[in-house]
Simulated assay, not measured.
Amino acid sequence: MTAREYGQYCGVTRALELIGERWALLIVRDLLVGPRRYGELAAGLPRIPSNILAARLKELQAAGIIRRGPRSRIIVYELTPYGRELEPVVLALGAWGFKAMGDPRTDQIVTPDSMTMALRTAFRPDVAADLPPTAYGARFGDAGLLIRVDGPALHVARGDGPVDLSFAAGPDIRRVISGELAPERAIATGVVEVLRGPGDLLDRFASTFHLAA
């Protein structure tokens, strides 16, 4: 590992030495969604310099957090079991950071992997367990996701399929998830555009995915 050392014998210190370098945790975040090729990681983190991405991948491999898993002749990167133990840490950080997000800047984007992890962070399985199974087709900017909720189980994937409600939204969907903006008001003001299906299902979405700001 070439990451910085803090000179302290502490679990938090060691964790920061392993994943505290810039971009490292975002690489882990995207790999929690699924294995990714180098180009897919670069596309999901459009501001990361190529030399930094290569360095972080090498460091994370050396730490046993990720590994190269060959698929035919294509090399993909995936989390090791040790790396997957970071999932509750990443989800907790996402919930904590959500409280300080504020309004989106014009240069900020939503990626499929970042939105997938945001939905996993906001998912309330206890609420969903009492609701009918529901499928949502959601487009967040360029990120198109198929969201299936079946009781306490959540499945999020890229692509299309049969859905009960299809809608489009920008980063301001945060205001719906936080409860700051009521679903019907979000539709009326254009924060959410219903593409197909009954708009009142957005109430179910807001109940199923909720994080207090």
Rank of each mutant, 00 (worst) to 15 (best):
T2R: 13
R4N: 08
Y6A: 07
Q8P: 01
C10M: 15
V12A: 06
T13E: 11
L25W: 04
R29Y: 07
V33P: 00
P35T: 10
Y38P: 03
E40I: 04
L53Y: 04
K58E: 14
E59N: 12
R67I: 02
R68W: 04
R68A: 13
I74Q: 14
V76T: 13
T80W: 11
T80K: 08
T80N: 10
P81L: 04
V90A: 05
L91P: 07
A95V: 01
A95R: 15
F98L: 03
G102I: 04
R105M: 08
D113E: 12
M117R: 08
M117A: 06
L119M: 10
R120D: 01
A122L: 00
F123S: 02
P125F: 04
V127P: 01
D130N: 11
G137F: 00
G137H: 05
D142W: 06
D142F: 06
D142N: 12
A143L: 05
L145T: 03
H155Y: 06
G161A: 09
S166W: 10
I173T: 06
P183C: 09
E184F: 05
R185N: 13
G190P: 10
V191W: 01
V192D: 07
R196D: 14
P198R: 15
D200G: 02
L201R: 15
D203N: 15
F205V: 11
A206I: 07
S207K: 15
